[in-house]
Design a protein around this nucleic acid. Structure first.
Lengths: 159, 159
DNA sequence: ACTACTGACTTCAATTAGTGAAGTGACCCA
DNA sequence: TGGGTCACTTCACTAATTGAAGTCAGTAGT
């Protein structure tokens, strides 16, 4: 699907990007978190061409992000459901929504997130799991593993 | 750049996806959060072809995610820096890293995130800003605005 | 019995985007 | 004079995407 091969890289962002670093992937995920299950619903709500949607769903299934279940044998009809792996993508979609609301939005948000346990409409926040303080880019410092450091060193040297 | 026009959609995930719903965009962002500033460093560390990198950087600049500063007049040399808008993308990249580490990783993470204020190596977590409980997909319920609901209703009806 | 419709797709030809390799321009260093 | 760096652009080629149309297995209506 993508011509580049990022999956052999050490960077796990690269590996994740290979899976859903694609507009349709993100639209599909958004739609599934909104409850979309069937091919034609996903198609209409994402606006993806049939062929594009089809290749993406196959890919997501082969990765393990979603499962394709028959809900009728005759005629054969299927629906797609997120697996645990797929549900774990929720923070990514929510982060994108938060960013989109803040920087690309036009005042009112199209979707509110209601926290079931407390009932409030919320914008989930990233916090440090140790000290529970909100975290942003400038609060963090990356520390590279030696293996990853070496991969980068090699890149620096070549070409 | 993308053939589809998602930016006029109400959904802010769609708008965000239009900006960086692309493998190279994500790789560039990862690299910039790791401290990459110059064209050739970004190229080597992301593995992007020059032309691809060039179009992506132009696009990110035009959106306002990064700024292109001259660090030398003669010869003309530039570096790229994230704006506030760009730094706000951090939660997305971190969420992707967390997902990649968990589901695509091979034991050891290539990059640790050190929380400067507490000094710990952490995996940032999404919490409800009201009750401070960790939040996942099943803790949340989406509520659509009437405008967005109408857009979807229209999609349901056509073709 | 015939026609239309639904759902989940495939196939196809035309268009568009992405690719590696090579080239450009403005310098610096020896 | 020759080579090297940096930040790109241009080009010919290949690969992916697109919209439209078609397929298959049924159900519903008249």
């Amino acid at each position: 699907m993508s011509r580049t091969n990022l999956s052999e890289k050490a960077c796990t962002v690269a590996r994740a990007a290979e899976v859903f670093g694609d507009v349709w992937m993100m639209m599909i995920l958004r739609e599934m978190f909104l409850g979309g299950r069937r091919f034609d619903a996903l198609q209409r709500q994402t606006g993806a061409p049939t062929a594009s949607l089809s290749t993406r769903l196959k890919r997501l299934e082969s990765v393990g992000v979603l499962r394709r279940d028959a809900y009728s044998e005759h005629p054969p009809r299927y629906e797609y459901r997120l697996t645990a792996m797929g549900r774990d993508l929720w923070p990514i979609v929510v982060s994108m929504k938060a960013w989109g609301d803040k920087w690309m939005g036009s005042g009112e948000t199209p979707v509110e997130i209601i926290h079931k346990t407390c009932g409030h409409s919320v914008t989930p926040q990233m916090v440090c799991p140790d000290c529970h303080e909100p975290m942003q880019a400038h609060d963090a410092e990356p520390r590279l593993s030696t293996a990853f450091e070496q991969e980068r060193e090699a890149a620096r040297g070549k070409s």
